[in-house]
């Protein structure tokens, strides 16, 4: 479910291209045709990839789209066609609206913080890069932690009884109640998600920084006294392609890949805790047994993600300077 939207777009295009290439090779170019005298061979090569795409993407998404139009009996006794009722239910539900709102907020904050902090750390590391490999390794190693484990570690840090952060908050006179208080949980979710994503951004920003030609930086050194100006006017614009790529990745991360973290933090907690749309799909579908409604929600998500991706490439990419 995670970054399917991106992956689909890519495999979709490449499949089409390959088909087109195969087709054109057959008709106008007799020299190439010789290579394809067994027309089945290319398909044979394609088969594993096609199988993966079909089994793991097309089939489930077709399923999702179909079942979004049905009301399924919770005990598995057949399904009734209900048209767009599931969609209407989801879109009109105030709970759905508040979850959507939180998801947007969560995405924004997580993306902004993990990009910002990743960049900050990368800039600092870049300054001392020689002999600072331990610093780098320390930062990057967090990336090797699987999201559920990160969630668990985070949960321990925020634990009501033994969490050091809870103790710290208490020291400052704040009663941090992760899993009970809505906004406290939100803070924990954001903190853990950001912490998990910083290393990824750090690696890319650092390599982006190091690919800024030394002489260009030196030219800037002669042209501008203030380090901040040099960063704003020269380094940052040259990092823009990296930043754009990371923006897309981070939004996807915040929307989808934070699922295990949310799961660990809010699972089996009684109160009204903040969750994202993806988690709601799972809750409604698997915990609430509302397959139809959950499918409708996931179709809506697909559309939103597709729209977001198109938007990003359309409007942001244009303002990004490449090479």
């Amino acid at each position: 479910m995670t970054d399917t939207s991106l992956r689909t777009a890519a495999s979709h295009r490449s499949l089409l291209d390959r088909l087109r290439a195969w087709h054109s090779a057959e008709t106008p170019n007799p020299a190439k045709r010789v290579q394809f005298d067994a027309p089945l061979t290319p398909w044979l090569f394609l088969l594993p990839q096609l199988a993966v795409v079909v089994v793991f993407f097309y089939w489930p998404s077709v399923q999702a789209v179909t079942s979004s139009f049905y009301l399924e009996d919770p005990f598995g006794f057949g399904a009734t066609f209900v048209g767009t009722d599931n969609y209407a239910d989801a879109l009109q539900s105030s709970q759905y609206a508040s979850t959507a709102l939180f998801t947007a907020f969560f995405c924004l904050v997580v993306t902004a913080l993990s990009l910002g902090l990743g960049l900050l750390l990368a800039v600092k590391a870049d300054k001392v890069i020689r002999g600072a490999s331990s610093y780098k390794t320390l930062l990057i190693s967090v990336y090797a932690i699987a999201p559920p484990v990160a969630g668990l570690i985070g949960m321990m840090i925020f634990d009501l009884h033994i969490g050091p952060l809870t103790d710290l908050a208490a020291f400052f006179g704040y009663d941090l109640q992760v899993g009970i208080n809505y906004w406290d949980t939100a803070i924990a979710l954001i903190t853990i998600s950001v912490w998990k994503q910083i290393p990824y951004n750090f690696i890319f920003f650092l390599s982006g920084l190091q690919s800024v030609p030394v002489s260009v930086r030196e030219a800037a050194l002669i042209d501008a006294r203030s380090g901040w100006r040099r960063f704003r006017d020269v380094t940052l614009p040259l990092l823009a392609p990296t930043a754009f790529f990371l923006l897309v990745i981070n939004i996807t991360y915040a929307m989808f890949d934070t699922f295990p973290i949310i799961d660990v933090v809010v699972k089996d907690k009684p109160a009204n805790n903040p969750i994202t749309l993806v988690y709601k799909v799972y809750l409604d579908g698997f915990k609430g047994n509302d397959i139809g409604g959950s499918s409708a929600q996931s179709v809506i998500l697909m559309v939103v993600v597709a729209a977001l991706t198109v938007l990003q490439f359309r409007f942001l990419e244009r303002r990004v300077h490449y090479g």
Partner: peptide, 20 residues
């Protein structure tokens, strides 16, 4: 003094123009 304060201008081998 910082390079920017030295009142010099430098021309580099690979030009070092700001690509953006």
């Amino acid at each position: 003094l910082d390079p920017a304060e030295r009142d010099i201008a430098m021309v580099f081998q690979n030009y070092a123009l700001y690509p953006h």
